[in-house]
Design a protein around this nucleic acid. Sequence first.
RNA 1: GUGGGUGUCGUCAAGUGGCCUAAGACCCUGGGUUGUGGCUCCAGUAUACGUGAGUUCGAAUCUCACCACCCACC
Length: 376
Amino acid sequence: MKHAINYTLIKKDPRTKARRGVLHTPHGDIQTPVFMPVGTQATVKAMKIEDVAGLGHEGCGLILSNTYHLYLRPGHELIKKAGGLHNFMNWNGAILTDSGGFQVFSLGPLRKITEEGVKFRSYLDGSSHMFTPEKSIEIQNCLGSDIMMAFDECAPYPADWHYVQKSLERTTRWLKRCKDYHRDWERQSLFGIMQGGVYKDLRAQSARQIVDLDLPGYSIGGLSVGEPKEIMYEVMDDCVDLLPADKPRYLMGVGSPDCLFEGVERGIDMFDCVLPTRVARNGLAFTSVGRVNIKNAKYFEDFGPLDPNCDCYTCRNYSRAYLRHLFKSEEILSSMLLSEHNLHFLVSTMEKIRKSIEEDRFLEYKKEFYDSYGEF
RNA sequence: GUGGGUGUCGUCAAGUGGCCUAAGACCCUGGGUUGUGGCUCCAGUAUACGUGAGUUCGAAUCUCACCACCCACC
């Protein structure tokens, strides 16, 4: 079977599990490790698409969007009519769509999980809907994303072993149904999702089952759902070793600067996270010298750039005092400038991580970054 | 000058004799945010009742004087 997505491993870090690779997609090659900005509603909030494309120094080629949200509004049929999601949102790069599985988890009180799928109520108008693995793939087929995610259940933290086991086995059965339903593998690839919570034996069980299905990529789900970071790192350590080395490994929902380094060090190739854009809209910037809460009074007359070591559009043109003013005034430009900076920061940090792996100095770069960043 | 009205945290504004060592909102200050139901959530600061005297067991609430501001008329 020919796949839309193919992974090439370029180099492995001699001292850690970090690795440098390329993800070949129908919409271009993606250098890994990679950070994907999130565009849930067919838009990366507060960003023009050309600015998303221009993030970092090499540009950004892969973003994430969401099956659940686009199904509810405007509807996947409309997007199909528009010529697919790429066309609809004017994005020439690659797209990965989440399956709606996470919403099953995050919209807890509005849903009911059965073997068949998930019945839930729309948060928009209260109407009742049924999501099944088949439905999720059908929608993602209409969207035309390069990478489709399997419809899974992301178990909450904490959750007891028995529940997580039942949940993971159902997720595997759902994955098989996703695989069986999908047809055009040359156009779109399907990634499987490992679950298993914080239990090592369950992670192993989940990994065995999904790897058996021989998919073009695998992701680690069910992390970063409220567990302490140390536990997340521990689980990550185990998880990566359970996945095949010749396939991309995607850690879902993770994207604080420190987690990116810790993930790469453990062998993760792909990350996505709403954090940079969400916190940007709330006045928080990630910078080379740590978090900058632009709301703070101390920036009232700080005419220096947001990040002294950043060359993004925001940092090249505006001062902290101006950004603080924009935020306090609730001006739209505040969200735009801070979002662009935060995304640029993560994307370009990932570029430097890639370079450091190529030059066998990943750990040195990590230390340098941590020393400059300070407290996370 | 005469008549009327109003004076409660930075602002707006509840409260009209005891449950007010005074609600709430905004502002302000700080924090949170990880496969986006959030231009959002959480927390904190201020001995604020114009001033002075009086009535009363008890006054932000009643009385008097004064002060300030607003309106109308001269």
